[in-house]
């Protein structure tokens, strides 16, 4: 019985991971790709780890550690990446730019990477 629940969690986690990869392909813009990349993969990894924890109840401490790491660190790194990308002036999809007045573009506008 617990195996069934565990397998269900692992399956849903891998669905999330696959949707992250698909989203990376189909999203129109660099910033939206960052968003789907981090959110979906974090959720997927968390679900898979919870599923594994149901399978092996004595591994639970180490798995909780990994979940905590990934859960805390992934949004921070994506935030820093998006901030730097906006400063660099990466082309954005059409829509309102809420950050344009607060954050000035960088002066070294020579190479747009």
């Amino acid at each position: 019985m617990s195996e069934l629940i565990g397998s269900l969690f692992i399956f849903s986690g891998s669905v999330f991971l696959f949707s992250a990869g698909l989203g990376l392909l189909r999203m129109p813009d660099a910033f939206t790709r960052i968003q789907t990349g981090t959110k979906a993969t974090t959720m997927g990894a968390t679900l898979v780890m919870i599923g594994l924890a149901i399978y092996h109840p004595d591994w639970i401490f180490k798995l909780l550690l990994i979940i905590y790491f990934v859960y805390v660190s992934n949004p921070i790194s994506s935030h820093a990446l998006a901030r730097s990308g906006h400063r660099l002036g990466t082309p954005m999809a059409p829509g309102p730019d809420a950050l344009a007045e607060i954050d000035t573009r960088s002066d070294a506008a020579g190479d747009k990477l």
Partner: peptide, 10 residues
């Protein structure tokens, strides 16, 4: 440049 408050708390 300063990376911001979120990174600092993190």
């Amino acid at each position: 440049s300063d990376p911001g408050e979120i990174v600092h708390s993190g």
